Computed example of a mutant assay.
Amino acid sequence: MPELWLPGATRLDIGDHAPTDGGPAKAIAHITWDDNGTAANPLPLAPYEDLVGYFGRNPDGKKVAPHILWDPFVGRFTQFVPADSRSKSLADAAGGTRTNRAGSVVIQVETLFFPYCRWNGTTYARLVDTPCEGWGALNAWIRAWGVPDTWPMGRPTSFTSNRSESVWRSRAGWYAHAHVPENDHTDPGSWPAFADAPYEPFPGAAFFTTGRRSPIIAAMHQRLVAVGCDRYRTHTDLDVWGSGDVASYRAWQQKLGYTGADADGHPGPTSWTRLQVPHT
């Protein structure tokens, strides 16, 4: 299992842990938007410590705390709940679509930023204009929890809303706050590009057909053996998809807790991401 707490983050556990519902793994991108600057009147960036105190110690702040507070200017992180707990940064109406719990994980990131903030004498109109320090480590940690490097509703490029309940229910990946049902916020406005992945991205379900030959399959074979899911009768033709791959991948799915039709031996994006097949 990946680390419950982001390595290198300051841990400020606020308690009140609760499980998620299961389903497609998600990450939610927010900005703190604690002030309103303009091009004509930029405002100083809020102190990081103020946001830590709000989410970590203020009773009202705890009610809307994310998993992670990220300072993209210097790469600081504070984490308030473990990755496998729900956090509370999304509106979630009683009896409606689940938001904070709608996935195997729903990791929420609040980024210390608002448009036209001023830091060290420079004004930043968009999050992507900041140094984005620490993004690579954050991206890698969330990826390890099975959240694929994809935006099912599109990578945010402006402060506009675009919501689909059916996509939200069915697709793993990154969502802007502006994409989440029952929510009316339009942040984050922009978000950094995904960091270079050290692992093979999911090649798609259609890739895994009998007789397919690829170095990706050989790398997968080696990973399945390494994680204790070796159900191969032979270790020849490592790069050819066959019955041994199906049996071994089924063992991996079962190790992750999948059952029934969800453990059929055919890779899906979440189990594949968590297998961490090296680039070939």
Rank of each mutant, 00 (worst) to 15 (best):
L45M: 15
Y48A: 13
Y48Q: 12
E49V: 14
E49D: 09
D50N: 07
V52E: 00
V52H: 03
Y54H: 02
F55V: 07
R57V: 08
N58C: 12
P59K: 06
D60N: 15
G61D: 08
G61R: 02
K62P: 07
K63W: 14
V64N: 09
H67M: 11
H67S: 01
I68Q: 15
I68P: 02
D71V: 01
P72K: 14
R76Q: 01
T78D: 04
F80A: 03
V81K: 01
P82D: 01
A83P: 03
D84H: 14
S85P: 02
S85M: 03
S87A: 11
S87E: 08
K88A: 11
S89T: 13
S89I: 05
L90Y: 07
A91T: 09
D92P: 12
A94R: 08
G95L: 12
G96S: 05
G96L: 03
T99L: 08
R101A: 07
R101S: 12
S104P: 00
S104Y: 02
S104D: 07
V105C: 11
V106W: 06
I107C: 09
L112N: 13
F113H: 03
F114Y: 09
F114R: 07
P115Y: 15
C117A: 10
R118Q: 04
W119S: 11
W119N: 11
G121A: 01
R126M: 14
L127C: 00
V128P: 04
P131L: 01
C132S: 14
C132P: 02
G134C: 05
L138Y: 13
N139K: 09
A140P: 15
G146R: 01
G146A: 03
V147D: 09
P148Y: 14
D149T: 06
W151R: 03
P152K: 04
P152D: 08
G154F: 11
G154D: 03
R155Y: 11
P156Y: 14
F159L: 01
T160F: 00
S164I: 03
E165T: 02
V167N: 04
R171K: 06
A172K: 02
A172R: 09
